[in-house]
Simulated assay, not measured.
Amino acid sequence: MTQRLTPGTAALLTTAPLLWAGNAVVGRLVHTMIPPITLNFVRWVLAFAILLPLARHVLRKDSPLWPHWQRYAVLGLLGIGLYNALQYMALQTSTPINVTLVGSSMPVWMLAVGSLFFGAKVTRQQLAGAVLSILGVLIVLSRGEWSQLLALRLVPGDLFMLLATGSWSFYSWLLVRTSEPAGLRSDWAAFLMAQLVFGLAWSGSFAGVEWSLGRTHIEWSWALAAALAFIAIGPAVLAYRCWGVGVQRAGPAVAGFFINLTPLFAALLSAAFLGERPHLFHGVAFALIVGGILVSSRR
C-alpha cells in the first residue's frame, strides 16, 4: 500500500536520480576502457561482495527467498540484468545528458505499463502530462531537428535507453506487487541480495555472450578501479535501496516522476567532469518534461 509523499520519501526518491546521473557520467568516462555488458557484470559482482556480510542469510536453504524464486528471477532480469546493461550500451554512442533525458520518459512508461498490465487507472491530467513528456523525448531524439525524426536518424544509444526505460517500468511495478513474507522486504539488504542472486546469473550470461563476440579487452587502471568502486557502492547499493523504499512508500506512478531529476543532475555533472555543455534543445526538452510532471500531478 502506498502512503502520502513525505519529505523523507521525497529525499529517498531524489537521492536515487542523483546517484544514477553520476552513474551515467562515469559510464561515459570509462566507455572505452571496458565493454558495457562486462561493466554491468563487474559492477554487480562488487555489489554482491558488499552486501554479502549484511545479507548472507538470504542464501541459506531455509531462506524465504526460495519459495518465491520466480519473482526474484524476474526482478533480477529487469532491474539488474537488462536495465543497467542497456544503459551502458546506450552510453557507447550517446551522451549522459541525452541518455538521462530519454530516460525521463519514465512517467509515460509507468502509466502505460500500469494501465496495460497492472490494472492502474490513468486520468486525463496524466495523459496530458504524458504527451508533454513524449514531446520532450522526441526533441532529444531529433537533436532539436524534426527532419531527423522524419528520416528516422536515431542514435543507437537512444533506442537502447528507451528499452532500458521500459524494463525499469516493469521492475518498479513489480516491486509493489508482492506475496513474499514482510521480513524479507523490510530488510533492504536482504531484499536487494535476493534480486542479486538471480541478477548476477542474468548479467553474467549476457557478459558471456559479449565475450563470445570478441569484446574482452579491458584497460585496467586506477581510474577504472575508482569508477567501479563508485558505481558499485553508489548507483548500485545505495540508489537501489533508496528507490526500493521510496517506491514502496509512494507507489510507482509518483516515484516515476522523480526520474526526471536525473537529466538535471546529469547536465550539471557532465558540465563539471566531461565538459559537455547543454544545448538549447536540451533546455526545451527538459521544460516540456517538467511541464508533464506538473500537469500529471494535478488533482
Rank of each mutant, 00 (worst) to 15 (best):
H282E: 06
D158Q: 06
L52I: 00
L138Y: 02
A73T: 12
A47Q: 00
L294K: 15
Y171Q: 12
A267F: 05
W188C: 05
R185W: 07
G166A: 10
K121I: 04
R215Q: 13
S115G: 13
W222T: 14
H68I: 05
S63A: 12
G256A: 10
I80R: 02
Q70W: 13
A112F: 11
R71H: 15
A239V: 03
V237Y: 00
L238V: 14
S205F: 15
T38Y: 07
W146S: 12
V30L: 09
A90T: 02
R60W: 09
P235R: 07
P64G: 06
N98D: 14
F206M: 14
G119W: 13
A225Q: 05
S186R: 15
G183F: 10
V74R: 04
I231M: 03
S104T: 06
G79M: 04
A223E: 13
S63Y: 05
V209I: 14
G283P: 09
I259H: 01
H31A: 12
P7G: 06
I259P: 02
A194N: 02
T262K: 04
A223G: 12
L184E: 07
A227M: 11
G76Q: 10
A253L: 14
W222R: 15
G292A: 07
S147T: 14
Q92V: 10
S167Y: 06
W168Q: 09
F198Y: 10
V140K: 00
A85E: 09
A236E: 00
Q3D: 15
A225I: 09
T9M: 13
F258M: 04
R298L: 15
